[in-house]
Design a binder for these strands. Structure first.
Lengths: 233, 233
DNA sequence: CGTTCGATTGACAATGATCAACCCTTGTGG
DNA sequence: CCACAAGGGTTGATCATTGTCAATCGAACG
């Protein structure tokens, strides 16, 4: 299997044996490059391979009530359609935000390796557990928080996830998302997201321009967004 | 392991072998009865056993921004803290709504059985996959839908899940939830949930009194709530 | 019979949506 | 090299969905 970042995470999380590690690393895969806006996997497809995000970002999206709702962002190392091992069809688009690179790993081959190395099954299950925890946080974010803490929380989450895969240092990272993307993810209008971000800037909490986001006051942002990174471990 | 309904679901979903089935059925467990409002598992606990809901309902809740946000409802056969096999602490309360019965299955014993029968690991992973799909729908529900379709969607989801475990027929079921519970789950105020439910009643779509809910016009409700049960399979 | 909880109603407030411009940067074709 | 188009960001004005507050009602229960 491809990505360094994924593998490193699985190794720590799942405490894999030597042979399991080798089996994982040795999995064959194909690489595909995507441009901004390209759809990696289409809603309704029945994929025969899993997608590992190697670089860039994907977002899981679907039109709900004439609104494009984003239900997840994926950072390098994530496997956005891992659940398709269990459920045949994927009911969302996986859309590249900015250019990205993905690797595809055949279900058939992957299933065989999982049969041979049960520790890997357990480790990948753990990945699903983390994704579920993220969804849970989003439910709470959308259900209970006002605009400002909601956006703050999402910023903290993205920063932490990027940091974990070595793509952010000191809260500074490259983010190709537009304010419209954030609106779709936060269930807010673009206009209101714009005003919210301005408020965060005005308070000196973030610097976000030309696709570079920097969290200037992490602690304060976490306080406002009621963010606790525990759930991402 | 205890519950008929869970086991039946796992059998169909996971295509378990004879020996795996036996191992599953043979798992030792302890039963506990809960009254309305009792907390089965407390936020911050580090459970040493998994909880299988045998009868009644649990809701996963946590206080966010001085609001009690419910992020999941559980029906009989569900294992609300299954993820604790992977993550040590649970960061929500699991609260009984109405009286309920739960079975607890020791992590140690369960882990051993999972090591011995990898097919079971895969099947339980599948349970996590379904729970994640439900969270995803909640994200979309909270992020994109107005009050009426939001409540309609939740009603459809509950009805379908109840039907799957044989606790609803023709969309009629026993539901101990209050309007306040629905408010906490839908991210709406109690007052507005009340008005929304009245609107559903006025349109002749539901009958809901003295803890009995009946979906009178399933198709119309699904249309309003933009509900498609695929994700629950 | 009083208390409590859940449901209901009305009046009013506010967060965030919508609509409509406008600006600025970037990219592209002539 | 310039003109123009397009996309993203920004702003102001207005609208409306939903929240808040407060009171009432009815049923269940001890």
């Amino acid at each position: 299997m491809p990505h360094q970042r994924l593998i490193k995470r699985l190794l720590t999380a799942g405490r894999l044996s030597e042979s399991e590690q080798k089996a994982l690393v040795g999995l064959p895969y194909a690489v595909r490059n995507l441009a901004d806006g390209d759809i990696a996997v289409h809603q309704g497809e029945r994929p025969s391979a899993c997608t590992v995000l190697m670089s860039g970002f994907l977002s899981r999206q679907r039109v709900i009530s004439e609104r494009n709702q984003i239900s997840a962002f994926y950072v390098p190392g994530d496997i956005p359609d891992l659940h398709c091992l269990h459920v045949p069809t994927i009911d969302h688009d996986l859309c590249s935000t900015g250019p990205s690179t993905i690797a595809t790993v055949s279900h058939v081959v992957l299933r065989q390796v999982l049969r041979d190395f049960p520790g890997l099954t357990y480790a990948l299950w753990g990945e699903t557990v983390i994704q579920a925890a993220i969804y849970r946080e989003w439910v709470e974010n959308l259900g209970a928080r006002a605009a400002l803490p909601r956006v703050a929380h999402l910023l903290c989450e993205l920063s932490t996830r990027m940091q974990k895969v070595g793509l952010a240092e000191n809260g500074k990272m490259n983010l190709p998302f537009t304010q419209a993307d954030f609106a779709d993810a936060c269930g807010l209008s673009v206009v209101h997201v714009n005003r919210t971000i301005q408020e965060l800037r005005r308070r000196g909490l973030i610097d976000w321009q030309s696709q570079t986001l920097e969290l200037l006051q992490r602690a304060e942002l976490e306080f406002i967004g009621d963010f606790n990174e525990e759930y991402l471990h």
